[in-house]
Structures are given as structure tokens and as C-alpha cells.
């Protein structure tokens, strides 16, 4: 009875996964189809004549190296900024409990609710007033940091809460300062959670679009997401090239996720200990 139920659930899970992953598959397949095969009816699920050269071609004509580099700069900058500021914040929110902390937590959650497209106008005006628009990638890093911070803080706070306060107290009695105890006991135990959350932030920032599109006018500073959007003009027919672009853009992230997925899942669910 339960065996059959388990099989049913497994089958359902596989079906959902297939439905969910189909667009990804379609992206890769479309990328290597020839122009005529893309529009053939009925569509082919396995390309008859794979065009492997399309990736190098697109990399070349769209100057993708520069776009990807900009994406990397923004993602790395955001991750470093979020991790350095957010870790301390998450720790305080995890350890000290009182009414003000609850209020702070509420505000942090509140920020998470506001959509980027709503925030972008006030941010744009503010950055412009501060002269930050002269360093548009940095401005985007700041904006994305603000947007990604709550998510990071909430994840990392849960990790810190899983570290027993007694370990920290033992370190204090053993002769350490609060900061020393944090570095030598709490942080190493929360390391997985912090790392995983930072990686998730990196991935999120790597694909960020709304802020980059509005804040970075100079094409040579735009990230790959904006480059992809510019590629998709209203009358485009170059679907294979666009899909090749998208493939190049997402494959490294996907690969990283698949390689790290066990640690990511473990880091998010099990907390820090045992």
C-alpha cells in the first residue's frame, strides 16, 4: 500500500521535474538547431542537424566576454558586501531578543516584500543626487545588496540560532572576548550556512536585471542579463543565437548549483551542528 503510494509520489515528482525543466531543455535544443529547423512544424525534440559552432559565434559577435565579466563584477561585489554586512546583522538578530529586535526583523522582512521595479525610481534619483551614477556598476551593487540583504539575513540568522549559546559562553569563560568567541566558535560552526547563503546571493545577483537595466546606460558596463535583453529586439528571428547566448549565460551557474547542491541543501536544512 505505502509502497504503491511512494511510487505514485515518485512518478508525480518526476513529471513535475520534467515540466519544470522543459524550458531549460528547449533552450539548449533551440540553440543548436538550424534556422529552418526552429520554425519547422511539428517541432523536433532532438535536433536533426546540431550546429555546435553557434556558441563561439555568439560569444564573438555579441562580445559576451565583456558582459559576463560585468555580471561577475556585480555578483561578486554584491556577495562580498552582503556577506560582510549581513553576517554581523544576522548574528545580532539571532542572539539578542527584545522588542526592538522584533521590530528590526519586521522591517527587514518588509524590505523583502517591496518589488525591485518599485524601488528603482527612488534609488535612481537618490544615486543621481549622490553622484553614484558615475560609477554605475557600484551603484547597482549597492542597490542589489539592499534588495538581497533581507533574504541573506534571515537565512544566516537561522544558522546562528542553531549554534548553542553555551558554546559561546564556554569560549567567554575560557578567556575570549565576544568578538573573539564569534570568530573562533560561532562563525566556524555557522560556516556552511553562511557560505551557502552567500552563494545563493551570488547566483541571484548574477542574473539581476531590473536595476542594471535602469542604472547602467553605458553598454560596455552592462551585465549579461541586460545584454540578452538588448539582443531580443522586437522583430528578432535569431532564436538559435539568443538561446546560445542564454545557454552560455546560465550554464556555469547551473553547473555550480548541481556541483554544490548537496552542500546547499544540507546547509539550508540541517543548520550548523552535528
Amino acid at each position: 500500500m505505502t509502497r504503491n503510494m511512494n511510487r505514485l509520489y515518485l512518478a508525480l515528482a518526476i513529471i513535475f521535474a520534467l515540466v519544470y525543466l522543459f524550458p531549460l531543455y528547449w533552450m539548449y535544443v533551440t540553440a543548436i538547431k538550424s534556422g529552418s529547423e526552429i520554425f519547422s512544424y511539428p517541432p523536433t525534440f532532438v535536433p536533426t542537424d546540431p550546429q555546435w559552432g553557434v556558441f563561439a559565434h555568439v560569444w564573438e559577435i555579441r562580445d559576451m566576454g565583456r558582459f559576463i565579466w560585468n555580471s561577475l563584477v556585480i555578483a561578486t561585489g554584491t556577495m562580498v558586501l552582503v556577506a560582510t554586512l549581513g553576517t554581523g546583522c544576522a548574528y545580532v538578530l539571532a542572539r539578542y531578543r527584545n522588542g526592538w529586535i522584533n521590530l528590526a526583523l519586521f522591517l527587514v522582512l518588509m524590505l523583502q516584500v517591496l518589488p525591485a521595479s518599485l524601488m528603482v525610481t527612488p534609488l535612481f534619483v537618490g544615486f543621481s543626487a549622490l553622484g553614484l551614477l558615475d560609477y554605475p556598476r557600484f551603484a547597482v551593487i549597492l542597490a542589489v545588496t539592499a534588495k538581497a540583504m533581507p533574504f541573506f539575513v534571515i537565512l544566516v540568522r537561522a544558522t546562528f540560532m542553531a549554534v548553542p549559546a553555551e558554546l559561546e559562553e564556554a569560549a567567554l569563560v575560557d578567556g575570549n572576548s565576544r568578538i573573539g568567541a564569534f570568530w573562533s566558535v560561532v562563525l566556524p560552526l555557522a560556516r556552511n550556512g553562511v557560505l551557502v547563503s552567500a552563494i545563493l546571493i551570488f547566483m541571484q545577483a548574477f542574473g539581476e536585471f531590473v536595476y542594471s537595466k535602469s542604472i547602467i546606460q553605458d553598454v560596455s558596463l552592462q551585465p549579461a542579463s541586460v545584454g540578452l535583453n538588448a539582443f531580443m529586439g522586437p522583430n528578432t528571428v535569431e532564436w538559435n543565437n539568443i538561446m546560445a547566448y542564454a545557454s552560455i549565460y546560465v550554464t556555469p551557474i547551473l553547473a555550480a548549483f548541481v556541483l554544490l547542491q548537496q552542500r546547499i541543501v544540507a546547509g539550508l536544512t540541517s543548520g550548523a551542528l552535528k
Binding site: 553555551e166 558554546l167 569563560v173 575560557d174 575570549n176
Partner: peptide
């Protein structure tokens, strides 16, 4: 605590894992 020169054994032992 660090300046009091006292050592403490906790009920949960609180060993650094």
C-alpha cells in the same frame, strides 16, 4: 568573564564541536 579567571563545566559540556 575572561578576566575573572574562573573555569566552568557546563551541563551540556559545551565542547567546541
Amino acid at each position: 568573564p575572561r578576566r575573572r579567571d574562573v573555569a566552568m563545566v557546563f551541563q551540556s559540556y559545551a565542547l567546541y564541536p
